[in-house]
Amino acid sequence: MRVRRQRRHRKAVRFYTACFGFRQPFRVLCDGTFVHHLVVNKIAPPDKALSDILSASVKLFTTRCVLNELRRLGGSHAHSLNAAKDLMIARCDHEGKMKADGCISEIIGENNPEHFFVATQDTDLRRKLLEIPGVPAIYGLRNALFLEQPSTTQRQFVKTSEEGRLHMTELERKMLKKRTTNILGAKMSEDSSDEQEDSGEQNLESSALTKPQAVNKILGVKDKVQFKRKKAKGPNPLSCLKKKAHENSKPSSEKEKKDGDGTVRSRGRKRKRSRKGKISSDVGAG
């Protein structure tokens, strides 16, 4: 049960944080009835108890009107008055002459600019505050503290605000239309003056520019992508060169040299023959 209650409290805190800009440390405005409840049920320290249900650090406030109301109640609320004096004082211009509920309602106003969590045991005051957007209410039950869930009015306010931010208002629509017309007219007049000066060098593409295309050009909107058609290319000139004929190297003995009219065939080294045998044969015959 306690875990489920803490989960509901965290969910409500996220709602006020995301939708109304509540930030830590949370500011809690306490009236006399809530301070008296803390004292009677011995819930101490109060800042620790409130930080537990909000899962964040807190600062506790009260008003001079609340202190004067506790003072008028006499000795039965003397301990509650001493406990309230330890809290920080929220500024109000009533000088302690107004009732506590009226003072708190005036501080909260129509949209709770100070982002207060209001802690009170007054059921009528809680019901009244929950009808105001962005006002979370805290109350006590015996020795436990509870955070009121966001009311239907507060949730509807958030939903309406979100829808309003998503759509363009009529004033914004008129301003955008007027601005677009002015820019388009200035661009058209500038183009016409350029055409008169450079009538001999008109570009066919700019002269055929339509009004929607001009608007897109002014607003920086690109037209459809135009793909370039690839042209046929010729063969690689390096691949068309004739191959060089490689001459076969022949032995030096088979080369022919041209000299004048005839050809002289180069020959190799001559073999020397021995003449000894021939000489001996001639001598024997003689």
Rank of each mutant, 00 (worst) to 15 (best):
R267I: 03
P237C: 01
E114F: 11
L176C: 07
M168N: 10
L50E: 08
A232W: 04
R271F: 08
V135I: 02
L141M: 04
N111M: 02
E247G: 11
E163T: 01
H246D: 14
Q156Y: 01
V215P: 01
R275H: 11
P235G: 06
N248L: 14
R91N: 01
S76G: 12
L29K: 05
A285C: 07
L204T: 06
A232F: 11
N236S: 10
R229A: 09
V28C: 12
L209T: 04
G164I: 01
E190P: 02
A137F: 00
G32K: 03
E110N: 05
R72K: 10
L238K: 14
D93R: 07
E190R: 11
D282P: 00
A208L: 11
I138A: 08
G109W: 03
R269W: 07
K42Y: 08
I218M: 12
S206W: 03
S151K: 05
A83G: 05
K11Q: 13
Q202H: 14
R271L: 10
F117M: 13
F20W: 12
E106D: 10
L60A: 05
G200R: 09
K42F: 04
H77C: 03
H77S: 06
H37M: 13
G74D: 03
D93H: 09
T62N: 03
L81T: 00
S51G: 15
N82G: 07
L184K: 05
L54G: 06
L209R: 10
K217N: 06
F227P: 02
K278R: 15
K228Y: 09
R265Q: 14
A245K: 15
K174S: 09
G185Y: 01
C92E: 13
A56F: 06
E205Y: 04
G109M: 02
G75W: 06
I138F: 06
P237I: 09
S161W: 09
A49E: 14
S105E: 15
R91S: 02
I89R: 09
R179W: 02
L145R: 02
F20Y: 15
K11W: 06
F227H: 15
E162C: 05
R142N: 11
D47C: 13
M98G: 00
D124E: 12
Q149V: 01
D124P: 00
K257Q: 05
K272F: 08
L147E: 10
H246L: 15
R91W: 03
V35Q: 05
N182P: 01
I89V: 03
D282Y: 11
R127F: 01
E254A: 10
R173A: 14
L54H: 08
K224S: 11
S206R: 12
N143M: 04
V35W: 01
I132T: 14
S199V: 07
F15I: 01
R267K: 12
D52L: 10
R91I: 01
N203T: 07
D52Y: 09
T263M: 13
A56R: 06
I279H: 10
K244C: 02
G260P: 04
L38E: 09
A144S: 08
R7C: 03
R5Y: 08
S76Q: 09
E110T: 03
M88S: 13
K159C: 01
D47E: 15
S51H: 11
R165N: 07
C92F: 00
L60Q: 08
L130V: 04
S105L: 15
